[in-house]
Simulated assay, not measured.
Amino acid sequence: MKTEEFGVLESITTWAAEGRLPEMLPTKQARSVKTAAALIGAGRQMLREMSLEELSIDELCEEAGTTVGAFYRRFESKGDFFVTMQRVQTMRTEQSIRAFIARHPPGQSSLEMLCEDIVHETVDNFRSNLGVMRASLQHSREGMWKVIKESGDRYRSMLVLLLTPYMDGIPVAERQFRILFAYQALAGVLVHVVLNDPGPLSLGNKNIEKELLRLTHAYLTAK
């Protein structure tokens, strides 16, 4: 195959068997799931350089080393294929979040360390999933942001639980709002960069994490 299979073949097999990829047509053939993984990997790469409208099924299949017939045996439409890409992305992100939580056992971290990890994880998520994120945002009015938003809601709930004990000096009644707004500001900057790249810092600039950490930590500790 011409494109990496996104390194998630085993996970996709499990998620499909658990019914967590409902837009992917059911199959018991391992080869068919491997084809789906190759298509997802190819789609992710192609969307980094083009819009969802420009993504051709013919070109996608050529890039993935498969056939258009094989595509339609796995997905009824390009829309179903894209939602499956979103679901795979969010489940991969949630695996990363579980690892993040494990790195910070209760009472064994600091607000600055947590902010640094949160900013890094969030920027890395936008960078590694750039094409899918941009296409999702561009089609948000068509409901294409729903899967990612639901994952984000779960992430924000986790941040409230994780950060609240470390916010000494901030009234308890204010802590949840502070955390939620800090993440809204962090994600908002990255959404603006993905959609418009207005400068001064692009998503690929090594200083963007440093400045977003400064912004996030300063707000969470401001009196």
Rank of each mutant, 00 (worst) to 15 (best):
T164S: 09
D117C: 09
Y155R: 12
S110R: 00
K223F: 14
R175K: 12
K206Y: 09
T122H: 02
E23F: 01
P26C: 13
G7I: 00
N196L: 07
P106E: 13
I12S: 07
E49P: 02
L201K: 04
D80Y: 02
D58A: 13
I170M: 00
V8F: 11
T67S: 14
M91G: 06
V88W: 00
L130M: 11
E10H: 08
E150M: 00
L203N: 10
L114K: 08
L162P: 03
A218M: 11
S32L: 05
T93Q: 02
A102I: 00
F126C: 12
R154A: 14
L60C: 03
L114C: 13
L203Q: 12
T90A: 03
L213N: 09
M85E: 01
K206H: 08
R103C: 05
L215S: 03
G107N: 04
G43E: 06
S202F: 04
S11F: 06
E23Q: 11
G199I: 08
K34T: 13
L60K: 02
L186Q: 06
I97L: 06
L163F: 13
R20Q: 14
S157Q: 14
P200H: 14
I179G: 11
Y155L: 14
A37H: 02
E5D: 14
N129A: 12
N129L: 06
D117M: 10
F75E: 09
Y166E: 15
E150V: 06
E211K: 13
P26K: 07
A70N: 13
R31M: 03
I57S: 03
A70M: 08
S77A: 01
P105E: 01
A30N: 03
V172D: 14
K206E: 15
L161Y: 12
M1K: 07
F126H: 09
G43P: 12
V132F: 03
R74D: 05
G69M: 06
F71A: 13
S202C: 01
R20M: 08
M133N: 11
